[in-house]
Simulated scan of single mutants.
Amino acid sequence: MNEQAEQMQESTTVHRLECSVDWPPENVAAYLVDCAEPILFDAGMAGETAREELTDDIATHGYELADIEHLVVTHPHTDHIGQVQAVIDAADPEVYAPASIRRRFERDPEDLGDTVRANAQAAGVQGESLDDAVEMSVESLKRDSRLLPSEAVDHWLGRGEAVEIGPLTVETVHTPGHQADHLCYLADLDGERVLFSGDMALGTFRPVAMHVGFDDGYEDAIGQFYTALDTLADLDVDRVFTGHDDPHTEFEARVQHDRESLDRLLDRTREALEDGSGSTAVEIAFQRSGDRNMEYLVIETASALAHLDGEGVLTSETDDHGVRRYEVA
């Protein structure tokens, strides 16, 4: 890093920008790095309300959307890429995103629908719920590829590489599990090692292990999440700028919290089979759901069952209706 860049970093400030969402914790955060070439990490929720919130929040720090020179994406979920196009229209910034998103957005929607139908059916999803799961997956692919158009990305970022983003040197850290392409970004700011963590190392909850949804590879979500936590645990981090909680300095504790949460997920999944609560992902997810979103819990539970099956803790077979049923080995 040159001397000028180091001087720029000495006075760098990071501002948390907040947009509303309809699910707990009812907000999502983007971060404005106030430096010689303003950088925005993530771009808030989709919709007009979020656009107004993002614009107003930036204005409280003396900026406009047009001032953004660099836009960095952690992962392609709607609440993190919702205002990418608004920022592009206003500022025409350099746009950075995980390289594997490009391939994901090239997925054939019809083929995705067929795959999701087979995998969701194997999890025990039936009838209208099965049709809804297929439609949701296909529409999510179409929507997210519109929100983050591939042709607008200037820099497709690999995993574990160093990249110059304005005056910052940023290291990409691949952290799958919650979402398969998810990257965190590690940088030095004002003598601190800071992590722009997206939906990892959150302060109050572990994000659901959605990974690839019910596309092929969903079985790997839990294993990939553990791998991501191992990767994070090896980092030296002083401060974390998260996608849903306030910035915090409890990095090691939050990574350990997520690991323990995954451990509990696997334990409770096995226990549900032992006590007869069910034999399919849908049946076990129903026992967990309470007032939470059942759709995502089914995906996570299906991955937990597949993980335990792969470890030999469970056995499984597919019945005549294409439903995979599990029992303790």
Rank of each mutant, 00 (worst) to 15 (best):
R288W: 15
N2S: 12
R103I: 10
T227P: 01
A272C: 13
R288D: 14
A30Y: 03
F41W: 02
D319Q: 05
H155S: 11
S197D: 09
F241G: 04
T242H: 08
G276F: 02
A285D: 01
E300K: 04
N293Q: 12
R270G: 04
V240D: 12
P247F: 08
P93Y: 03
E64C: 12
V72C: 06
I58H: 05
E311T: 06
T74M: 05
R268N: 12
I299R: 12
S11E: 13
D22H: 12
R325L: 06
E128I: 05
D144F: 00
G322Q: 10
E327L: 09
M200D: 07
P109C: 02
R288F: 15
E300F: 05
E151D: 14
G310D: 06
H15D: 01
T315P: 14
V194G: 04
R264W: 09
P25C: 14
D245K: 02
E171S: 09
V328W: 13
N2C: 13
G124T: 09
A91C: 01
A302S: 10
T301L: 03
S261P: 08
M200F: 06
R324D: 00
V72D: 07
T55K: 15
E139W: 13
D275N: 10
V240Y: 09
A201S: 13
R292L: 15
S197T: 07
L65N: 00
D258T: 14
E164K: 11
I222A: 03
P247E: 06
S197W: 03
T172F: 10
T315N: 12
Q179Y: 15
D34E: 11
S20M: 10
E53I: 05
T249W: 07
C19T: 15
R51C: 06
F241K: 01
N2W: 08
V194K: 05
L189H: 07
A228F: 08
G203Q: 12
L17Y: 05
L235Q: 07
V33E: 04
T242F: 05
P176R: 00
V73C: 06
E300I: 06
T78E: 15
S20Y: 11
D181P: 01
G127E: 14
A50I: 10
Q4P: 03
G160P: 01
S20W: 12
A152G: 08
V73S: 04
Y185E: 02
D238P: 01
A86L: 12
F105I: 03
T172Y: 07
D234N: 03
R51A: 08
D236F: 01
D181Y: 00
Q83K: 00
D246A: 09
R288A: 15
H155P: 00
G62N: 02
A66K: 10
D92V: 00
R254T: 09
A253V: 04
T175L: 01
D275V: 09
V173L: 01
D92T: 04
E6G: 08
D114I: 03
A36W: 04
A133K: 11
I39Y: 02
R104H: 12
F41N: 04
D42T: 13
L130D: 06
R270C: 06
E164P: 08
V212L: 12
D190W: 09
H15A: 00
V282E: 05
V87C: 07
D154Y: 05
R51L: 11
R254A: 01
E26S: 09
D267H: 11
A253N: 08
A180K: 13
D92N: 09
V28D: 00
H178M: 10
R16K: 09
R292P: 05
E110I: 10
G160L: 03
D89Y: 00
A221D: 00
N2F: 07
A120P: 14
Y63K: 05
